[in-house]
Design a protein around this nucleic acid. Structure first.
Length: 580
RNA sequence: CGGGGAGUAGCGCAGCUUGGUUAGCGCGCCUGCUUUGGGAGCAGGAGGCCGCGGGUUCAAAUCCCGCCUCCCCGACCA
């Protein structure tokens, strides 16, 4: 360690907030170069390499490794339309001739073109390729060190099949490989349903590691195991043949000045109390007036109805409307649609397209706008009094909501996205003209899958999941070294000699050793750094050396034991190999 | 993009309200001696474009204007 390129920090750096970020900086694993861009020092790079090796081993069983450039030309992304669609997130640059270039945010296009270049016959399929490559995304807000950087290392793979069954098999193979990888890394994970969104395609799952510092929220059902991110979470279907609620015909009531959910509830409570219980926000149907913008730029109005006690979940609605986008109606939009009575909008206002959230079940009765100033309707029944143009998932999902599969109570958690698998289908192959000849000599468009694992992010996730107050606690499989040997107590020459000899013996047996031979440090500093750096086993050469003993400490459990110096190397070797 | 906070030595900070010697403290760093099982002691030393630009003033880290950057929360994000 006297020559190891690193230095520890005694105090928490201001730039870091989450534990993994703080500890990786303090331990000298990483250093910030620019916002969201990090340098890896030797210790950090070794962890990185260990993770990479595990990923590579498992990927080699199902795919072939290749390596594509990170610096890419514009054209392929133009063809797939992502030069535009990706927006500000792409790092763009120009070469000296003025040609547009980019730093690859993901490589679907380039893989597709490469396969197109190399393959022309059905005989060359199925095919799966992968690379481990730096990716660049100009994130609006990078956070938490390498947990979400603007440059990050990613294993990305792509499968190419001729038919849907083949794609399903490739998808399943990746899914299984991912589970093996995360198991070997000792990471908890949940495979959640995800929306394929901008990537297009059908099936998509995210592998999330539950963590408070995670940016993704997801729901799980403890009863049946259903798991989904919020964007894709479903809502229980209507109970079949549910009888229409026995309510009197819908009645229009005056609700002057009640243009918000709260004021409607208050107004009804005063003037039209219901007999059984007070009115609640959940009795109302909130109708949101939106403008939907298609990719071609046309804007059309849309009204979405959600329960009055819920908020619109922008991402869920966006996923539903994709590739169109939406925004709330502005005052100008309302002026352009005078038939809409702001604050009193009801279903089917003036023939504007009306979508109803799936939580609003057929046969249920609601209070909602009457499409007239200062008036609401009470007892409006879905399916009896009006039919929506369609159903959407737009209202926010909450802890305790019923599970769509078994109606158990959903639990909400945060998680960090470790990996994501997509069954893409033919979107990219079609856009880029990847078709090969089948057995009858006819061209078929290839169907693809794309699969990613964030390797540099996993360095942070492992740190996040494996630390205590004193520092990092690396699992053996990814620790930068097997042993941390340090000298404590009087450095009378004998102890430090013993430490050096022990380190050399262990290295000769194939163990990696971090030897703290830094001059002039107090014992406390050495112990402190050993705990901070987090090697799984710490070996203390101290006052015991005089009696031929050294002490081992298990970083994770804190368990200490004394072993004879003569047999220490052998004992440590078996300790390391049996627990690796 | 919205909200909040911050830029002073390698790191963490004080000083700014109320302008005024040579800009300070802790840690780290260098030299020497002492010390040595949980972040040592003494002595000496190096290290600053006080974010940038302009303004006010006899005088600006401090007051005024403009800009830049970073961090956090939210929005957004395969």
């Amino acid at each position: 360690m006297s020559s190891l390129f690193f230095s520890t920090l005694r105090e928490d750096p201001v730039e870091a907030e989450v534990p993994s970020h703080i500890l990786l900086l303090r331990g000298g694993y990483i250093r910030r170069c620019a916002p969201g861009i990090y340098s890896f020092l030797p210790l950090g790079w070794r962890v990185h390499a260990k993770i990479e090796a595990i990923v590579r081993e498992e990927m080699d069983l199902i795919a072939q490794e290749i390596h594509l450039p990170a610096l890419l030309p514009r054209e392929p992304y133009e063809l797939s339309n992502r030069w535009t669609e990706y927006g500000d997130e792409i790092f763009r640059l120009k070469d000296r001739k003025g040609n547009d270039m980019l730093l690859g945010p993901t490589h679907e296009e380039i893989f597709t073109l490469l396969v197109k270049d190399v393959c022309s016959s059905y005989r060359q399929f199925p095919l799966s390729l992968y690379q481990i490559q730096w990716k660049y995304r100009d994130e609006a807000r990078p956070r938490a060190g390498v947990l979400r950087g603007r440059e990050f290392l990613m294993k990305d793979s792509y499968s190419f099949d001729l038919d849907d069954e083949g794609l399903a098999a490739s998808y399943a193979a990746h899914r299984a490989a991912y589970m093996r990888i995360f198991d070997r890394l000792g990471l908890d994970y949940v495979a959640v349903h995800a929306h394929s969104g901008a990537m297009g395609g059908s099936a998509s799952e995210e592998f999330l590691c539950p963590s408070e510092v995670g940016e993704d929220r997801f729901v799980t059902c403890p009863k049946c195991g259903y798991a989904s991110n919020l964007e894709a979470a479903e809502v229980p279907g209507s109970t079949t043949g549910a009888p229409m609620v026995e309510v009197p015909p819908a009645q229009v009531v005056d609700t002057p000045g009640a243009g918000t959910i709260d004021s409607v509830v208050a107004c009804l409570e005063t003037h039209h109390p219901r007999g059984d219980r007070p009115w609640r926000a959940g009795d109302t149907l909130k109708n949101l007036a939106l403008m939907v913008r298609s990719p071609s730029g046309d804007e059309t109005p849309l009204i979405v109805g959600i329960p009055g006690d819920r908020e619109l979940d922008q991402r869920r609605l966006e996923a539903h409307l994709y590739p169109a986008t939406f925004r709330p109606m502005s005052d100008e939009d309302f002026s352009a649609h005078p038939e809409l009575v702001k604050g009193y909008i009801g279903p089917r206002a003036a023939g504007i397209r009306y979508l109803l959230d799936a939580m609003v079940q057929p046969g249920s009765s609601w209070v909602t706008g009457a499409n007239q100033p200062d008036r609401h309707v009470v007892g409006l029944v879905v399916g009896r009094d009006f039919e929506p143009d369609g159903s959407v998932l737009a209202a926010d999902v909450r802890e305790g909501d019923p599970c769509p599969r078994c109606r158990g109570e959903l639990r909400m958690q945060r998680g960090i996205e470790l990996g994501h698998i997509f069954a893409l289908g033919r979107k990219f192959a079609a856009a880029l003209g990847l078709a090969v000849l089948d057995q009858e000599g006819k061209p078929v468009t290839v169907t693809m899958g794309s699969y990613g694992i964030g390797i540099s992010r996993i360095v942070a996730v492992l740190a996040e999941k494996n630390h205590d107050d004193a520092g990092l606690v690396w699992p053996r499989r990814v620790a930068p070294a097997d042993l941390h040997v340090l000298v404590a107590g009087r450095s009378d020459g004998a102890t430090s000699e013993a430490a050096q000899r022990l380190a050399a013996e262990c290295s000769a047996r194939g163990l990696t050793v971090l030897l703290d031979d830094r001059p002039g440090l107090s014992a406390g500093e050495r112990f402190g750094d050993a705990d901070l750096l987090g090697m799984p086993t710490i070996v203390v050469c101290g006052r015991g050396v005089a009696r031929g003993l050294v002490e081992t400490k298990d970083r994770a459990t804190g368990e200490r034991s004394e072993i004879a110096l003569d047999e220490a190397a052998g004992r440590l070797e078996s300790l390391v190999s049996q627990r690796r």
